[in-house]
Amino acid sequence: MTPRARLGRLLNDALHRVMAEDDSVFVLGGDVADPQGGTFKITAGLAKAYPSRVFGTPVGGAAVLGVANGLALTGEKAIVEIPSGGSVAQSFDQILTMSSRLVSMYGRTLPIHLVVRCLVGSGQGDGAAHGRSPQRHFLGVPDLHLFELSPVHDPGEQLAAAIGLGRPSVFFEPRSLYGRYPLTPRAEPGVEVTGPFGGSRWMRLVVGAGAGGPSGVAAEVTVFCTGGTVARSVRAARALAATGVTVQLFVPSRLFPFDLEPVTGFVGPGSLVSVVDDGPGPAGWAGAVAAALATRLWGTLRKAPVLLASAASVVPAARELEDRVVISSTDIVRRLVRELETP
């Protein structure tokens, strides 16, 4: 993964590579064909290179997922683009009722190679219709794997893992990341990046005096966050580090099922643990991870894990109002400072 290419370009390269290496892969979705090349050009060039395997479809998530399920059930591999977190609701029934159940509903385990690429997140004035983070609605569905595009993971490896699982998966892509470069020590001086760890392929970021890898000084604050909140969490960690507080962050490639065992050993006794969620609290990925961490680490933590999430509100289109709803680095700093100051 080269820092000279933005994440959107890396994801486009990954799609080209997957289709070049496997002629059983099909791409479907509204506007995925050229010249549009997807809502944010992530599928640009695919239709020109593979015209018989790229299908631009009408708006209709349930119908598109039905076709994709049929392809996967007959042994092909399908990648579907859902243009926004708001419109994924149209596909929810097919994903929940059919995609996830095709694996085991026929009396034997069937490989189902299906990836639903779902554009999510806010921060660009997209409003209530498009600026949503619906990850919570897909948590806990048997045989359904959830991934999230991340600035500290290789998009090509993430996509290859999802399509190669033999299980249906949803690959959430925070649109704010498409124009960003991968986060590397060179790109973010003072941030140490190590990993991956375990099945969720956690990446560990250390900011502050504790930078030095697993053998470094124990972090006073530990933050679990997903790809869409990494930049905000790093900014918050830098602000805390400036006051002498060492912060470590853990970012997963796979949101669900999550595998905490390989990383809980990094959480030292007396550490303040927080989980950040781009969606509205309290239910969701952050709540599930916080509950699991409390169960595993109870008695060793400073206090119960702190859940940090966006407000329980629709996302306004006006940027000033949006900033009041969506969790920000300032929100993270204020809450963690208050928790550190409270016995």
Rank of each mutant, 00 (worst) to 15 (best):
G228A: 09
P174Q: 02
L159V: 06
F256Y: 15
G199Y: 09
A187Q: 11
P257F: 00
G213D: 05
G190C: 03
W202L: 03
P189L: 12
G179F: 00
G166D: 04
E261H: 10
V191D: 03
A239E: 12
Q248V: 02
L240R: 01
A161T: 15
L183Y: 11
T264D: 03
P168H: 00
R201V: 02
C225V: 15
D278K: 09
A161S: 11
P269V: 10
L177K: 06
L249G: 01
G227Q: 00
A239G: 06
P269F: 12
P214G: 01
R186H: 07
P185N: 02
V207I: 15
T226W: 00
P189K: 11
A236L: 02
P185V: 04
E261S: 10
V191T: 13
R254G: 06
L240K: 00
Y181Q: 13
R167W: 05
G213Q: 05
D259M: 09
A242S: 14
R175N: 05
G216S: 05
D278P: 11
P155M: 10
V191W: 05
G210D: 10
A219G: 10
L260T: 08
R201D: 12
P182M: 09
R167E: 07
P269N: 07
P155Q: 11
V170K: 03
G179T: 02
A237N: 01
G210L: 09
V170W: 07
V230R: 02
A231R: 14
G208R: 13
I163T: 10
W202R: 01
P262N: 09
D259E: 11
S200R: 11
W202K: 00
D277V: 01
R254C: 11
P257L: 03
A231Y: 15
G199I: 06
E192D: 12
G210R: 14
A231V: 15
G208Q: 13
P252L: 05
I163F: 04
R254A: 14
S271G: 12
